[in-house]
Design a protein around this nucleic acid. Structure first.
Lengths: 226, 226
DNA sequence: CGGACCGTTGAAACCAGTCAAAGGATGTGG
DNA sequence: CCACATCCTTTGACTGGTTTCAACGGTCCG
């Protein structure tokens, strides 16, 4: 099953990861949490649904999407191992989320979180800084969507995934080109053409489907005008 | 001076506004803050500068922009009266901010804020929810940038400003069309053409420069496919 | 009064989208 | 284990919305 390549995070019970990113929650015993698994394509939550949990991705990948009435779709974010999502501060979900591959997550009760964060300043401030960081990243992505060419977007995307998937050598992407397209504000055909072009320029190699090897990271950075 | 139309917030010493949005800071005596005024076009902070303050806009308007190496510019946000910015969670600024018109703000020391938020859970959690709300709005804007047509973007922008400026009847925009364009990921010519078209359709009236009157809000909502 | 900026309009070029078709990979069920 | 259906990817040709380039008038401000 080639997909397992994309499941990067060490599954040695996620404790080391919890310490670095999520001990905010780890040492708050009053916050109930449990592991949940989702299969490929499975819905996690949908639009206008009441928000019950925040999620910490342990393994796999999640897409957060929003559809316009006429069917146009946009991906607001990918959530990869080591990241937290579902903490939008709204009672109702404004988007829907689905697992891209088999995904396991830690689900945290929002009502517990809300209560504890009102008491535990360290927890609340940690979550605030986490949200602020997400906000900064979202606004950087807005520059990509508003002002970058197709090739620049794809180059930036590859570098972003290289960073976030923390992979060595060969990168195995968990999402299809259609998802990349909706994340980058492009059509899937355009994404395909850009990847083909980057390969022709000897900057990347697409060995198997969704598997990227970098030949020239510096060259990629030149395309990604940040 | 026509610009004053854009300065909406009741200047009766901003206390009522502080109560609703910012009493988080108001009752924390250990947080030093002071009023600051900026003239039209004045820089507030610039890229790669060390972050010292967060700001609460009392009156006026601010743009947060990011430039690519080749000069392309994108506006990440407008900050209007009643809104808070500059709390990005990073030591160095990732963007620059300028006053669009004469603007007065409450400047809050970040080191004080950081210290107090580590102690006061109510403050920290309030700021967290504020950041989460900003994140949600930023991601909604991403849909606009990634998937909407020029006319849809301009329609959505007018409705957004109508909401955020809390104006009755005639709306006086504090930003020029070039700024709108960079906020919406369009060229200034396209923005102009869209506004002209909306006027030809009897949906808005542009009486004076930057002054918009709504004839048909329902019609605008039809263009804004959310 | 003059200059800079802003807004408007037209014409042409171009990038990316759309439509279409074909091959490849994947997964399912017989 | 194979056949088949579905989804994904790729490529080409065409279309079209937006950008770019250019020119002009208006407004604001020094």
């Amino acid at each position: 099953m080639a997909i397992t390549d994309a499941m990067i995070v060490p599954t040695d019970d996620c404790s080391s990861w919890l310490e670095t990113h999520f001990d905010l929650l780890g040492n708050a015993a009053a916050i109930r949490s449990n592991r949940q698994s989702f299969t490929k394509g499975e819905r996690i939550y949908t639009r206008n649904e009441t928000a019950h949990h925040a999620y910490a991705v342990l393994e796999g990948a999640v897409r957060a999407s929003h559809c316009l009435p006429d069917g146009r779709r946009h991906l607001r974010a990918f959530h990869l191992p080591g990241e937290i999502f579902g903490l939008d501060g709204d009672a109702l979900r404004s988007h829907e989320t689905e697992a891209l591959v088999k995904t396991t997550m830690l689900a945290v009760r929002l009502d517990d979180l809300d209560r504890e964060a009102g008491l535990d300043a360290g927890l609340a401030w940690g979550l605030c800084n986490l949200a602020a960081g997400e906000l900064r990243k979202a606004r950087e992505h807005m520059v990509l969507l508003g002002r970058k060419s197709a090739l620049e977007r794809v180059a930036a995307f590859l570098l972003e995934m290289d960073r976030r998937l923390a992979t060595k050598g060969v990168m195995s992407l968990p999402m299809c080109e259609h998802d990349m397209a909706d994340y980058l504000g492009l059509s899937n055909e355009t994404v395909s053409r850009c990847l083909t072009k980057l390969q022709a320029l000897r900057i990347i190699v697409l060995s198997k489907r969704r598997t990227v090897r970098f030949l020239d990271r510096a060259g990629l950075h030149e395309f990604d005008a940040s």
